[in-house]
Design a protein around this nucleic acid. Structure first.
Lengths: 254, 254
DNA sequence: CCAAAAGTGTTGCGTATACACCCATGT
DNA sequence: ACATGGGTGTATACGCAACACTTTTGG
């Protein structure tokens, strides 16, 4: 049996040597060409009106000026999940964002500079918790409505379509809405999320009943004041009840 | 705008030079360490009794003698999808297998030799169409019942659990059964697939009605003779009808 | 003729849908 | 007072699950 107790950074199957070619140092050498691996995050947010995604404007070529998803190179000593967490934190300041793998995009020509395979993630977050700040490589960072996306760099339009499809599918199995809303929320806020993701109109009363029947909403006994009309009940997500549901296989059709 | 019309193999961002270190030639050099990228295929088959997966026995260290999923290194000039097609063809002889991305497994320690990120796929095929033949690196290739899996190499047990979960979930949305069965099949064969994937018993009459109600089964007007009892009707999968269904969002609960 | 599997039908119950109605609140 | 959104109730229809019965085939 093969045994190796060296730390991973000493265990790479490459040859490390300092030498210079042209202007750059190329230390890490392999028998066969290796692709670069990046991670990209499709971050969905909700502002109370509609569904948005977070884009950064590229400050450098290629695709300078075009918009793209936040992301970057995966380090050799981290998993893809750690990489997307790090990149999102670096570019948005948010920690412990819930990010789920979306898929690998590996078209040979997808990056004109070199061979890059990207692992796409999608994440959901409360837009109100978040202060936008452009990172190092980015000229700007902004929210865009999913109905009005600017031209995207690389193959990011394809990644976006894939993300939206996944989000729609997951809506039926995952507590998608609760990740996008504040801890306390009203039933109609939750309904608005479902309506904007699915792009359909739902009956207010049936939606409420169906949601409550699932049993993973805690009525808080409080009401949201300050609105123009009758103060609505506030709810919170009941994670324990949801975990039970998931074991038995929850279904949630609309 | 950045323009580059060179073929991809001339466009890698590496430095290529022949030089020797130790015994091996290391031609491809990078400024930062790059992971190796592999593809692995979880291939499900059905033999009329139960659900099986295809494993190859490793002929070399590490994990020599352990079983693993067929797979191998992604080439620099192919997509992950092309790589898994090629590997499956090389190791099983099958062309144009329907393979879907399962996810990326990128634990830092998952391969003791070097840093390897793997893209896992899952595939469904008709076991009867297939003649087993071990590939170059493999000592043996065999079908195993999903209920009786031997110890697996690397993190392949984790990949396997992920694949089974995905298969169960996809069963409700995708024409899973039809990929596992012959072109012509009986209703009870189809039912057996559903029962063995979900691990439950289903009512024969309700299953038939529900399936036919979907409208993507063509009754062929032929019957399967040679059985011990009444000859059952044969059906075929109606791809056109299924594609229509999918647009409207099919649901199939059991 | 019998056993076992295949085909068809029926019925009752639960649940989703499409509504109507009342309540609370700011202007 | 009223417009608007929030909360609760109910009848109808539809679909699914649980059944019984008949038909076909090989042994």
């Amino acid at each position: 049996m093969w045994i190796n107790k060296q730390p991973i950074y000493l265990r790479q199957n490459y040859t490390k040597k300092n030498f210079t070619m042209g202007n750059e140092e190329k230390k890490y050498c392999y028998k066969y060409p290796h692709p670069s691996v990046t991670v990209d995050g499709v971050v969905f947010g909700f502002d109370g009106v509609g569904l948005n995604i977070l884009l950064v404007q590229r400050g450098v070529e290629p695709y300078k000026g075009k918009w793209a998803f936040p992301g970057g190179f995966m380090h050799i000593d981290e998993t893809a999940e750690q990489a997307i967490q790090r990149e999102l934190e670096e570019e948005t300041g948010l920690k412990n964002t819930y990010a789920e793998q979306l898929g690998v995009f590996s078209e040979v020509d997808r990056d004109p500079r070199e061979r890059v395979v990207t692992i796409a993630f999608y994440a959901l977050l409360r837009q109100s918790d978040y202060q936008l700040s452009a990172g190092d490589d980015a000229a700007d960072a902004r929210w865009f409505s999913v109905d009005n996306i600017p031209p995207l760099a690389f193959d990011h339009d394809r990644i976006f379509r894939s993300a939206l499809e996944r989000l729609r599918r997951n809506l039926h199995f995952e507590p998608v809405g609760f990740r996008l809303l504040d801890e306390k929320f009203t039933m109609s806020q939750l309904q608005t999320i479902y309506e904007s993701i699915l792009g359909v109109h739902l009956d207010r009363r049936n939606f409420s009943r169906k949601m409550l029947a699932l049993g993973c909403l805690k009525p808080l006994g409080e009401r949201l004041t300050g609105g123009a009309h009758r103060a609505p009940e506030l709810y919170a997500f009941d994670k324990k009840a949801y975990d039970n549901l998931k074991k038995k296989g929850m279904k949630l059709e609309f």
